[in-house]
Structures are given as structure tokens and as C-alpha cells.
Design a protein around this nucleic acid. Structure first.
Lengths: 220, 220
DNA sequence: CGATAATTTGACCGATTGGTAAACATTACA
DNA sequence: TGTAATGTTTACCAATCGGTCAAATTATCG
């Protein structure tokens, strides 16, 4: 009943995926990631995607029946890998080390997959019309689980007591900032500091901020 | 030579602004803020803005000649007030108090002017095509100035040594997160914690994070 | 009031939008 | 090699896009 919307719609009999199919779908998704992440869903045209992908519009529509289908395929793929760093958050590990490596991993993703970050940012910024369920379901569940881990650490006196949800929000926002607001970051840092070193600087600063900020208080 | 693009284009002889002009332009800008902040520039149509503003498209175009003109007017207005909190950053004040009130002010703006925040986020996310100069010019200059203030505080031993630029980035990102990613924040917090109290919780958490994170180290 | 300027509207324009139909070209495979 | 399935293109469609125009309406003010 539910149809997939992707791949060779006019050749209904095939189940196997051709080599060409895989290649072209990959081309299309990569091109679509470029365009969607820059202009948002409604600001993106199929023609644009087709041009970046180096094929004609009808040819593109042979692989994905609608603009929605392309976007949905992208979102699904990104959602799947986007939360891996948070999933890796380990209750048994050393809190300081876990937080440090979570920050580092998120920062690496901002550096290496800025398009994915911006795709997600665009979607949420526009009210998350396509992923509301994922946010309220799987995402919330995962965050709830990790929030409990953080709370346990605080109870055990391993880190300062703090709101675990806002802690996670602050790690998300500070790290993704370097992908989503890249233009602004580069403009402010200027040409001299805007080289790739900015990610190392950010990592150093953020580790300092969070590790000191969350360290158990030894007030004098 | 340079023409204003706004207001009564077909009545070139008037210099004075009518009561109707002021009212209608305000209506349009408010409606445009709604739509632009949700869909970005390219995702927004003039018809949409006109519908929200409760007037016909030609009527709207009587006050603003083009879509660009509306967007430009909005961006200019937002840019002007958006940086006020940072400008208020006072070198003579107490660092702890200055940072605390900067965070609070930014958080209040995220709460009270989420549309403005999202308009800006959309613009930057899409590569800041309309405000590149403002970012590289006035914004960079302001941040440079305040970065020097922060550096002076660190040299005086009033706060921990840290990269002042990334400090500012982290305050921007953590606070604006509550406007730009509002849907996600509410989804994760769930109905129970998603009331307006979330801004107070965020304020408490962020003050703790930044004040401890930037406190001069008293390592044991 | 009358007249002049300011405002609003419906009808319309060419360009672009998402998407389709069908002819054509290429591939895979027996 | 032949042929059926897969892949690609040209031409096209109705709807919507940003924007114009002239005519009609309303406000302003002497």
C-alpha cells in the first residue's frame, strides 16, 4: 500500500537495483543536499537540483517522483547518522572524557558535514514540518535516556548539578553553530583567523568552557 | 540616483509620509517577518505576504516595489537593534555581571523576538547573500572591539584566559538556539517542561555554565 | 463642495514552477 | 546478436511566480 516513491517508478517490475540506479540516485542526493541545505525546501527548485546533478529534470524525476521524495530521502539518511555521537554517550565512562569526546565528535561533524547540519537546521527553522514525529518520538526518547545518565553523574558528585536537557542543547548549539553560521563565523574572524584552524580553536575553547563549567564546585 | 524603493512609488511628488502609509508599511513588514522568518527569502512569495497582511498583491507592491525591498527593509531594521546587547557590553563593569546580563538580554530577545532571530538565522544559513558587507564590516568591528575588552579582563586575572571570539560565538549560539530551534526544544522537553519556564531554566543553566566555565581556575 | 493627490483593485504579462507523455537511446542478458 | 527492460530526452502542461497597468475608489484639503 505504502509506496516508496523512489527509484524507477515507470519500471514497476524490477526489485533489484541497477548499478546506474545507485550511481544516479547518489548523484541526485548529493546535488539535492547542496541546494536544499542552502535554500530550504521551498526555496529549492527541481531544475536547480537537476543542473547541479548534471542531468535533465525529467531524468531526475525518473529516479525520484517528486521534490518531496528527494527531501524525505535526504532527511531520513541524515537523521539516521546525525544522532550517532549522542548514542555513543556512555553511562559507564568517565563523565569528563565522555563530554569531551562528545563535543569533539559534534565539532568534527560540523566541520566535515556542514551541508547535513544546514539541511537539518533549515528543516527545524521552518517548523520541522517533515520531521515533527521523529523529534517528538525517537529524538526525545534518546535525549531523555541520556539526560538520566547526566543526572546520575551529578548525583554521584562526578559533575556539577545542572539541567541535563539544557546541557545537551548547549552542546548542540555551540558545535552546530560552526556549520550553520559558518559565513558569519568566517566574516567575524576575518581572513587571518578563518582558516581551518578555527575548528581547533573552537574545540579548545569549548572543552575549557564545558569542563570547567560542569566541574564540581570548589568555591573558595 | 540611488532610489529608496519604498513608499508610494507612483506618487513621486510627495515627501511627507501619510498616516495610511505608516500603518500599511508596518502591516506589511510584520506580515513579511512572519513569512520570511519561516520560509527564507526564496521560499517566500509576495502573495503569501499580502495574504497575511490582509491586502491585495498590487496594493502591497504599491508600498514596496519588489520582494527584495521588503526583505531589505526588514533586515536593516533587525540588524540595527540586534546587536544592542553586545554594544551594551561595558569594559568598566564587573566581568561576571556583564556576562550574566549579556546572556540574560540575549535570552530575552530569543523569547520576545523569535521571528527576528529566525529571519537572521535564515539569512546567514543561506550564505548571507544580502548582508555580507554588514557582517564583514560593522559586525566584525564591534566584535573585535568587545573581544579586546574580554582579553583585557583575562589579562587582569578577572576571568579565565580563553578565546574571546569563540566565547562570543558560544553565547550567541546557546541563546539564539531557543528561538531558532524552538520546535526541537519544545519537542524534546515534552509538554510538561515546554511551558514558558524553559527560558528561566535556560537562563539558570547558561549562567552557571558560563560563570563557572570562565571563572579563574582554582584547581585543587 | 470640488479637485487633486493618494490608495486600491482586477485583469493581465512573461517567466518559472512541479510534473507528465511519449518517443528515443542504451543497457543487460538469454 | 536480438530483444526486452532500463534509462534519457524533447516537447509540453497547468499552476504559480514576481511584477505591471489602467481604471476605479477613497482620502485630503482649500
Amino acid at each position: 500500500m505504502e509506496e516508496t516513491d523512489t527509484a524507477a517508478p515507470r519500471a514497476a517490475k524490477t526489485l533489484r537495483r541497477t548499478r546506474i540506479q545507485e550511481e544516479k540516485e547518489e548523484q541526485i542526493l548529493s546535488a539535492a543536499l547542496d541546494v536544499f541545505s542552502q535554500h530550504g525546501f521551498r526555496g529549492t527548485t527541481i531544475d536547480q537540483i537537476a543542473e547541479v546533478a548534471g542531468m535533465s529534470k525529467p531524468n531526475l524525476l525518473y529516479y525520484f517522483r517528486t521534490k518531496e521524495a528527494i527531501h524525505r530521502a535526504l532527511i531520513d539518511r541524515v537523521l539516521q547518522t546525525w544522532l550517532d555521537p549522542l548514542r555513543a554517550f556512555n553511562a559507564e565512562g568517565d563523565p569528563e572524557q565522555e563530554i569531551r569526546s562528545y563535543i569533539r565528535r559534534k565539532l568534527e561533524m560540523a566541520r566535515d558535514f556542514p551541508r547535513e547540519s544546514r539541511l537539518f537546521a533549515n528543516e527545524v527553522l521552518q517548523g520541522a514540518p517533515h520531521i515533527e514525529d521523529e523529534l517528538k518520538g525517537p529524538l526525545k526518547a534518546l535525549v531523555d535516556e541520556k539526560a538520566e545518565v547526566i543526572r546520575a553523574w551529578a548525583r554521584a558528585g562526578k559533575i556539577a548539578r545542572c539541567d541535563p536537557y539544557h546541557l545537551i542543547f548547549s552542546i548542540w548549539s555551540t558545535t552546530q553553530h560552526y556549520a550553520d553560521f559558518d559565513v558569519q563565523v568566517r566574516a567575524v574572524l576575518g581572513q587571518d583567523h578563518a582558516g581551518e584552524g578555527r575548528f581547533d580553536d573552537a574545540a579548545r575553547y569549548l572543552e575549557q568552557l564545558f569542563l570547567n563549567g560542569l566541574a564540581v564546585q570548589r568555591r573558595v
